[in-house]
């Protein structure tokens, strides 16, 4: 089970890296980067669900909020994927998916930095 947990952060980072070509506003991720992003994302979605469901809630409030954002980011993707929005709105949902996920990953990094700082001050 631990390897799954360990794989989660590298996969998140990999997903973000493969999404870089889609970061400029108004640009959709497509082509080879999208294929890679989908490949990473397919694995990541399952691992994220398993980790969220099976591991006990621990960590700081910031960390919990970061994970919540990452999961909401995934949920935002469902709207265009399921055809619940028209094409123009899909564009905004896809951008939301990206920015919410990036914000979550950023906060996760921040929480890790804070916990590292607090543990070193305790030592």
């Amino acid at each position: 089970m631990k390897w799954i947990q360990r794989a989660l952060i590298p996969l998140l980072i990999l997903a973000m890296l493969t999404a870089i070509p889609g970061i400029p506003l108004g640009v959709d991720l497509r082509g080879y980067p999208l294929l890679l992003h989908l490949g990473v994302g397919t694995l990541l979605a399952a691992i994220l669900a398993i980790v969220m469901v099976t591991t006990p809630p621990t960590g700081s409030r910031l960390q919990a909020f970061a994970w919540l954002l990452i999961c909401i980011g995934l949920l935002a993707l469902m709207v265009p994927l399921m055809g619940w929005a028209d094409s123009e709105a899909s564009h905004r949902w896809l951008e939301s998916h990206g920015w919410i996920s990036i914000a979550g990953l950023g906060l996760l990094g921040l929480s890790a930095k804070q916990s590292k700082a607090s543990s070193s001050s305790e030592n």
Partner: peptide, 26 residues
């Protein structure tokens, strides 16, 4: 597949967040 993963992960994340915020976790 993605819908199942997204709902499971999101529901669990909401639960985890509320638990930590209310201090009800271990």
């Amino acid at each position: 597949y993605f819908l199942t993963c997204a709902f499971l992960a999101s529901a669990a994340a909401v639960y985890r967040f509320l638990s930590i915020m209310t201090g009800r976790h271990g």
